[in-house]
Amino acid sequence: MSRTYLRMALIFGLIWVGTAEPGHALFGLGDSDKKELAASATITLQQAVDKAVGNVPGTVVEAELEKHDGRVVYEIEIIDEQGKECEVLIDAKTGETLKIKRD
Results as ranks from 00 to 15, higher is better:
103 D>N: 14
54 G>L: 10
55 N>K: 09
1 M>E: 15
103 D>E: 15
64 E>Y: 08
72 V>Q: 13
93 K>Q: 14
83 G>H: 09
30 G>M: 04
101 K>F: 01
83 G>Y: 07
47 Q>V: 01
9 A>F: 13
26 L>Q: 07
80 D>M: 08
56 V>E: 09
83 G>I: 02
94 T>Y: 02
11 I>W: 05
40 S>D: 12
8 M>W: 10
69 D>I: 05
5 Y>L: 11
46 Q>C: 00
2 S>R: 07
59 T>S: 10
42 T>K: 15
50 D>G: 06
63 A>Q: 11
17 V>K: 09
80 D>G: 07
94 T>K: 04
52 A>N: 11
46 Q>I: 05
68 H>G: 01
48 A>R: 03
18 G>V: 06
47 Q>C: 04
88 V>R: 04
39 A>E: 13
35 K>N: 10
38 A>I: 08
2 S>G: 15
20 A>T: 15
34 K>H: 13
49 V>L: 08
52 A>Q: 06
29 L>D: 06
32 S>A: 13
70 G>S: 06
32 S>P: 01
68 H>Y: 04
79 I>E: 12
25 A>W: 04
20 A>P: 00
46 Q>V: 03
35 K>S: 11
73 V>F: 03
67 K>F: 02
2 S>P: 14
18 G>I: 08
6 L>D: 12
60 V>Y: 05
67 K>M: 04
33 D>T: 10
95 G>T: 03
18 G>K: 05
47 Q>P: 04
89 L>R: 05
85 E>M: 02
20 A>W: 10
36 E>D: 15
36 E>F: 10
32 S>D: 15
6 L>G: 03
2 S>D: 15
73 V>P: 00
65 L>F: 04
93 K>C: 03
45 L>Y: 12
92 A>D: 09
56 V>F: 05
102 R>T: 14
38 A>R: 13
15 I>S: 06
46 Q>N: 09
46 Q>D: 10
47 Q>M: 02
10 L>H: 15
103 D>K: 14
80 D>F: 09
46 Q>L: 03
3 R>M: 11
93 K>I: 06
93 K>G: 07
12 F>K: 08
88 V>W: 04
19 T>G: 05
76 I>C: 05
41 A>M: 09
29 L>I: 02
46 Q>R: 09
83 G>N: 12
62 E>N: 12
20 A>L: 11
77 E>K: 11
100 I>C: 05
8 M>N: 11
27 F>I: 03
83 G>K: 10
85 E>Y: 04
98 L>M: 13
61 V>Q: 02
29 L>Q: 07
92 A>R: 02
18 G>R: 07
66 E>T: 02
19 T>I: 12
31 D>K: 11
3 R>C: 01
101 K>C: 00
15 I>Y: 10
